[in-house]
Design a protein around this nucleic acid. Structure first.
Lengths: 189, 189
DNA sequence: AAATCTGGATGATGATCATCATCCTAACAA
DNA sequence: TTGTTAGGATGATGATCATCATCCAGATTT
């Protein structure tokens, strides 16, 4: 751990990365500054050389989480034979359900975003619009309802993942994922 | 403020009620014991005459929030000419969006339930199953897909409300509610 | 009516937290 | 090489929090 500017940038990115993960797991208010810094291999004191306040870290962490969601989506779709199926199957997989820390920011941070400041909400809104646009493309209908159906599909996928994570019954959780997978795929006819 | 047993029961119920509201607004970890007690017209000290720990209050508050969701649903449906439309229009209204404290527990507490203990998750699961059963009835199809469609509808409604609350853009928020309203109603043919 | 019980108030307690002041040391400019 | 800058570590700070000990007064019991 040197003191060069490269090191600072690297540390900064590392802090944000860790925060983006932990905050998706336990909410934006969940992890403390000390916990985040420790996980980044640093001590809590240096935190304010990187951020004016913890709230500023929340803003950057949400941006990072959203960026990851975006990149993850692109990766899954890219080059897939059936892009819609690939996207939906990945989004509504047990693996995605069980790894909120690296998963969709819209579902993991929805409750927090509703209470957050303008900057966070704007970032969040951007990703929602991107998901809708993405599904408009994938649903690819010629009808004028494409946008409406895209919004419905995004809502169903987000709701499904939220509920599948919270439900105590493993079988029900799987059933909820499977049902929405089938329901969205059906729209593709 | 007397000291009779009736008073205690009343205070207990009041504490739980307040907590059920505040926790839907700011998460189960949001409001402190002192804040809740003050809102209930009491001081923080007496809290442990009612609960062994704050976690026990969370359990009772989630139960109360779920009970309210259940009763609210029944009320809206009861005697409506078109019960499905009545339910969906109420659930996906701007009023419901803007009042999380008295609204659906499944959407308000989803993120918290995923991290909570067994008792909370069991309560949460019960309400999810109730919503699904409710929509199975309302969708009233003869096909074997009713349950699947019911799950998809519940997911879409929950996701829609979550996103509509978090999105910074008022117009987009309204559009998301309207789109899912139309989408679910369409299934009723 | 006296004695007991108990719900609620007051006021610690220790833990955790975000924030900051200070110091050390490695990077970089001269 | 030397002096300056600034990133990171150490260790306060005050605020907030859940929890609990103690006390008071009203309720309940005898």
């Amino acid at each position: 751990m040197g003191h060069s500017q490269k090191d600072k940038e690297k540390n900064h990115a590392q802090i944000v990365e860790i925060a983006a993960q932990k905050m998706r797991e336990s909410g934006t208010e969940g992890p403390g500054v000390a916990e985040i810094m420790k996980a980044a291999g640093l001590t809590h004191g240096g935190f304010y050389k990187h951020f004016d306040s913890r709230d500023d870290l929340v803003v950057e962490a949400v941006e990072a989480a959203v960026a990851q969601s975006r990149e993850g989506t692109a990766e899954v779709i890219e080059g897939a034979e059936d892009p819609l199926a690939a996207f939906v199957d990945w989004y509504l997989s047990s693996a995605h359900r069980d790894q909120p820390g690296t998963g969709c920011a819209v579902v993991a941070l929805g409750a927090d975003a509703a209470r957050a400041d303008e900057r966070v909400r704007a970032t969040y809104t951007g990703q929602v619009e991107r998901y809708i646009a993405q599904l408009e493309e994938l649903l690819a209908g010629e009808d004028e309802d494409v946008r409406r159906r895209a919004i419905a599909a995004v809502s169903a996928m987000v709701g499904s993942l939220l509920i599948a994570r919270a439900v105590g019954d493993e079988d029900l959780s799987e059933e909820i994922l499977a049902a929405v997978r089938a329901s969205v795929a059906e729209q593709h006819l």
